[in-house]
Design a protein around this nucleic acid. Sequence first.
DNA 1: AGGCTATGCCCCC
DNA 2: TGGGGGCCCTAGCC
Length: 559
Amino acid sequence: MAPQTRRLAFPKVVIERDSDTEQSSSDDEGQEEEEEEGPLSESESEEEGKENGFEEKSEENFDAKKKGKAPITISLKKVCKVCKKAGHEAGFKGATYIDCPMKPCFLCKMPGHTTMSCPHRVAIEHGVTPAPHRNTRNALEYVFERQLRPRMPLIKPAYVIPDEVNCAVIRYHSRRVTCLEFHPTTNNILLSGDKKGQVGVWDFCKVSEKMVYGNIHSCIVNNMRFNPTNDGAVYAASSDGTISCTDLETGIALSLMNLNPDGWQGPNKWRMLYGMDINQEKGVVLVADNFGFLYLVDIRTNSKSGEAILIHKKGSKVVGLHCNPIQPELLLSCGNDHFARIWDMRRLEAGSSLYNLSHKRVVNSAYFSPLSGSKILTTSQDNRLRIWDSIFGNLESPSREIVHSHDFNRHLTPFRAEWDPKDPSESLAVVGRYISENYNGAALHPIDFIDVSTGQLVAEVMDPNITTISPVNKLHPRDDVLASGSSRSIFIWRPKAKSEVGEQKDERKIIVCGRAEKKQKFGDQSDDSDDDTCKMKGKNIKSKKSRSKLTPNNLKRKR
DNA sequence: AGGCTATGCCCCC
DNA sequence: TGGGGGCCCTAGCC
């Protein structure tokens, strides 16, 4: 099957070097042409590999030399790197990845086909398993219809998709980004946590105003939340087993709880904190660890209240906690025991969950919908998003399952589908995609906007300069802004500038931090196509002219 | 420029 | 039921 290419045009960017960082910049790498690997070059390298393989890797040859026999000529037939069988090969053909046909589909996990021919392949109107017709009428559903439904608009407004990189900090963190959080009141402040335990504070309007605090945690920052009553303070839960409360002005961090007071006593003893949320009404920080336990910390006294409660399978990681935005008594948790669980805060004890939402694999995240709190969206490692349309209805099975590639590789931050907090219809979600797609010869990993009420892919957003996967995504609570974390870099996306309106100077500033490295992936690419719609489905974003207003790329590549 | 590796979950014995 | 080996699209460092 011929690898498919999606044609797409991208605007140009301005790159600036971070003035704070010392750089050795030798500009010996010019603008590289983005070349497609044709089948010819592919087969050439195969030949080479054959010879080298024979000389260096063939054990038979080695044995033969030892025993002084003539080397046996064996033909090292190319075998599939996945199943080790001959006749086919998994791997990249140009920018398209060809699956091993002997394995189940990489996307939907079902046998009998590969990703290329998967009926759930990410495309419009694919991937949805419709809800079975059920009678979900009960008293609570009635209450829902009476009290909540009238507040929800019947007509969905058109989605505004932040589909163009507006600014970025490249290699901002020293390890991959693990979480992002917008400041609750100051519109242009973004917080980021990383695998090393550092917390970044970035003003993405001033762009160069940024700060990384390195002394708050000693390893992975798994979740951050602002103090709802004091937005100058932010809480963070870390795999170092502590919760921190950091004053953003001073950078001074308090440690509220330490689950490893005796230090490293082996992997079976070391406790890590993952899921975290704040219940404002009850004045507690809720946090959960990698052994299945939930802890409550009183915000006023900054001390642990009560004993740890087993809320997931003993010994399993609890990766997510979310308090219902409307009903403060409702708590949602999810974890590695393949369950998301709903709890009544008034009756938190082992085994007393109200509902257990089962999944086929680990649940990376589970969130109540942001406005009514009546829907649930989960991301599971079985490559499916699941939606429960009403927590007052039948929770036996999800209302919808949407097949989507976010199966996570251990080296990535787990993907989490996040609600758009601005969408009054509570149906738009954003989630990064794992498998790449061939865009004009480049393998890119888009960030998907999905209408979870229909399963429709509303938009897939990408930039040719971002070749890394973007598992961490957050939509702004008020503005049409998307923040994405990809490897060590952070990107701010806004809707494409509409050239007609007001001649807005759209300077896209890219700050490059850190040590000089071999290749900078911000280059000048593809300015040919006139298909500039960024795969917006059913929406017309006029932006052809906007590209010409962007300053030409002047990045000097360095090594 | 290629090879290592940190790291998490799953599966199998 | 527990430990160890094995991984399908990593990314960055040596």
